[in-house]
Amino acid sequence: MHTTDPGPAAPRPGRPGQPGRSGAAGRRTGWHPLAIADVRQLTPDAVAVTFEVPDALRDVFAHRPGEHVVVRHRRAGTELRRSYSVCPPPADPAALRLVIRRGAPDGFGAHAATRLTPGDVLEVSPPTGAFALPERPGGHHVLIAGGSGVTPLAAMAAAALRADPACRVLLVHSVPTAADALLADELSELKDAFVDRFAVLYVLTREEHGSGLSGGRIDDVKLARLLTAADARPGPGTTFALCGPAGLVTALRRALTARGADPDQVRSEVFTPAGTAPGTAPDGAPSPPAAAPHRTRVTALLGGRRRLATAGPEDATVLDALLRAHPEVPYACREGVCGSCRARVLSGRVAAETLEALGADEVAAGYTLACRARPLGPELTLDFDA
């Protein structure tokens, strides 16, 4: 369990070598109705949805590789929120495009895969997130994806290849079958464009192939063989980015560290499998501890305004209390994975578990996730704009 106390003022952790955005507070919150420009079928259960972004919102929806947005959909008196990585096609890196899988039959994915058409309007939050490649000019970037985890990594691969003519990129994609490989055609075109610097390897968990490298799950032994075959051994000059289910990402991070990878050069992001019930953490991780019996006065700084709420025994998390009074408070997954409800503790204390979306430096700087945090005293102030 993480216990967060407010520390000295610190800048919001950003991407190495990249300046922070001005006006970040105004970009992290709020909803904007965006019309759909195109819906393209990628696989039988996945579509690519591209939005029209008006000129007045170009700066608001400018994005970096690895960032995500939250889509809000209201239907039959219920509200669904889903977080999706921005995944523009290689030929149009500024496009606001999301790859959406069908997922649970009663969720937004099913609606998107079967009913969305150009002209439909969805509410979308501004891009946010800190998932990015470590900056290592001229280095070898090794990207390992499980399933839908390829969406941010594909964008990161294309951006790195364009920006750094001396770098090399290896993308390993683990999927059940070849038919499940999202964006395979675009990755093939990217390989043709950067034939000497980009390689894609597919590991099919439910198909047998002649090569021992292309079949089965990626375990420690398989990982070592893949890296050796691609001349991408951990060490100086090699960086890693991992994205997929929590179990896969945790195992890969552990294996890479054991083989000598610098932990600071291994970036990761996990996602919750489609259909996971709200409030349930991935891979059996514990839910937040039961709420304390006391009541807490919560002050939230959001969009430059102060919002007040009271958290009591009926609230499992700070987010529950805030949403009751202020539905505009940002969140998506409720499982500590997407980071949409990230906030800095300015005063008071919280305890939280399963902070997958935060790095150790962010936790040390006093950040928490409202969807996993519970207050430990009578007063609490959170800054969602930090």
Rank of each mutant, 00 (worst) to 15 (best):
R254H: 15
V49Y: 10
T250L: 15
P286H: 09
A132M: 13
R72Y: 06
T43M: 09
T296V: 01
R64Y: 10
D196R: 14
H173N: 14
G348I: 00
S174F: 10
L80P: 00
R217D: 04
R115L: 07
P90S: 09
L223F: 05
P13W: 00
T4V: 15
A132R: 15
I144D: 05
C371I: 03
L96G: 03
V86F: 08
G139A: 05
G284V: 08
G377R: 10
A35W: 05
P176R: 15
S83Q: 05
D164C: 07
G119P: 06
L252Q: 11
A311K: 04
D120I: 10
L382R: 06
T280M: 09
P33K: 09
L204M: 13
P134E: 08
K222T: 11
A130Y: 08
A112H: 03
V142D: 02
T280R: 13
A76Y: 09
A24N: 01
L170H: 09
E314M: 02
F51E: 08
P90G: 09
T3E: 11
D383A: 05
A160Y: 08
G284T: 09
R40T: 15
L116V: 03
V47G: 10
Y202M: 13
A62I: 07
G14F: 02
G247E: 12
R259E: 07
R75K: 09
G210Y: 06
T117Y: 03
T228G: 12
E186P: 07
D45R: 12
S125H: 01
R233Y: 00
A193Q: 15
D164R: 08
V49S: 11
R305I: 01
T299W: 00
P273S: 11
R374H: 12
A321P: 00
A258W: 00
A386S: 07
R305M: 05
E208D: 13
A365V: 00
T205V: 11
L213T: 05
P263K: 06
D231M: 08
A292I: 10
A104P: 03
A321E: 01
L34V: 06
R254W: 08
R136A: 14
A25S: 06
A370Y: 01
F131C: 13
R349P: 01
P293L: 12
V169W: 10
A199W: 07
P288S: 07
T205R: 11
A258G: 07
T296A: 02
L323A: 00
A199S: 15
T4P: 00
D262F: 04
R102T: 09
G139V: 02
L346K: 09
A157N: 01
G279P: 07
P33H: 06
E208H: 13
G139Y: 02
H141F: 05
V329Q: 02
G260W: 00
S268Y: 12
